[in-house]
Amino acid sequence: MTVPLWYYLVLSGLIFLIGLVGVLVRRNIIIILLSIELMLNATNINFVAFSSYLGNLAGQVFVFFALTVAAAEVAVGLAIIIALYRHRSSINVDEFRLLKW
């Protein structure tokens, strides 16, 4: 007996929410970015599960592109962090107060 689809949906929903809470709550930028990776992974789980149960490969193709975008975003994000770090030796978001939030 195969696993019902909604198990996967609950799993991905849970991971998505954990990632969401991580972005909102943590102050360390690296952890914030890792939480965003969690959100993207939740999306990927959703797509692969739907793709499998719908018999349609479009979902898997989307995962492919989501992976590409995630990789590119990590590159740019870490570059911004490095550029920022050269000015202030901290990556705690609360320290960035020059601009009002």
Binding site: G19, M39, L40, I80, L99
Partner: peptide, 22 residues
Amino acid sequence: EAGLKFFILGVFAAGLLAYGVS
């Protein structure tokens, strides 16, 4: 700083978009 804030909110929105699409 502006770049960082824009980036974080931007990829957060991208994550929302992807999940919505799924």
